[in-house]
């Protein structure tokens, strides 16, 4: 065996062990949580563990979902996350487009400002926000929480979509104008399809940000808790297998969501066509 083939073989081993490690990094914890979630009271302490989470049936999970408040909280959380996704895209993408395409006075300052919104500790804002929300009737509503979450996700969506639009050559839009498009048509027919994968990624991210956020959700709601906020208050006094079930429920939407739009994440059109 020559030296070259040894080094190729070595590289291959390195590559696949790297892949295996990364997969394990993500999958093993999820697997263990799933085991705990589906195993029920007995499953948590059993040894040896079941090989597959659903070996002991769905009864434990069903029992958890039947606990009062869990299902409502999950629906609430999903609703808030979807609203956040919608708002941050509707507000962030145009801001990103403006940052990418137009030169205006105070552009850099604006860019800085967008990032600076993240510099305010939410804890300081909590009290004024609560008071304002109670006054305007937004307190304890999914819409109110979604608005705060939008504020958290917005810098991310605006900056990501701005670099996204910057990556789409201006000439493509100009060509569309020349060949008969209005500004809006050019955006819809040319820019949007090309930006879609990136916008989908930004949307997922704002969904996940909202779904995972616990502080604002806890402070601003009492009865209409999101799942994260609900679990935070309840789980401390819950048996172990309930905690696992709660954790599993928290992970699930993100994983499903990313799985659903993975096509947009990977199937890029190859925008770099210069």
């Amino acid at each position: 065996m020559s030296e070259a083939t040894v080094s190729i073989r070595l590289r291959r081993v390195m590559f696949w062990s790297g892949v295996a490690m990364l997969c394990a990094w993500v999958l093993v914890p999820i697997y263990l949580i799933a085991l705990g979630a589906f195993g029920g009271r007995a499953g948590v302490f059993r040894w040896p563990k079941n090989l597959l989470p659903w070996d002991s049936g769905l009864a434990a999970m069903q029992a958890f979902l039947a606990v009062e408040g869990v299902w409502t909280a999950a629906v609430n959380g999903a609703l808030v996350a979807c609203l956040t996704m919608l708002f941050s895209l509707l507000l962030g993408a145009p801001a990103g487009y403006a940052l990418a395409r137009y030169r205006f006075a105070g552009q850099d300052a604006f860019r800085m400002l967008v990032v600076l919104t993240r510099a305010f500790p939410l804890a300081i804002l909590a009290l004024p926000l609560t008071v304002t929300f109670i006054r305007t009737g937004l307190y304890d509503t999914p819409l109110g929480v979604a608005l705060v979450h939008t504020a958290l996700a917005l810098p991310f969506t605006a900056l990501v979509s701005s670099s996204l639009f910057m990556g789409i050559p201006r000439e493509l839009e100009e060509a569309a104008w020349i060949f008969g498009c209005t500004g809006l048509q050019a955006f819809r027919k040319i820019v949007l399809p090309l930006a879609l994968p990136g916008l989908a990624a930004a949307a997922i991210f704002s969904f996940v940000i909202s779904w995972n956020e616990v502080f604002a959700a806890s402070v601003l709601t009492v009865r209409n808790r999101t799942l994260t906020a609900y679990l935070l208050t309840v789980l401390a006094e819950s048996p172990l297998h309930f905690r696992f079930a709660g954790g599993f429920l928290l992970i699930l939407p993100s994983v499903i969501f990313i799985f659903a739009v993975r096509k947009y994440l990977f199937a890029m059109w190859g925008i770099a066509n210069r």
């Binding site: 050559p169 000439e171 100009e174 060509a175 104008w177 498009c181 190859g270």
Partner: peptide, 20 residues
């Protein structure tokens, strides 16, 4: 007039062929 109403066509330096 905006470009679309001028009755012309253009070829760009970097082609600007729509990739999608």
């Amino acid at each position: 007039l905006p470009p679309r109403e001028r009755g012309l066509a253009m070829v760009f330096q970097n082609y600007a062929v729509f990739p999608h």
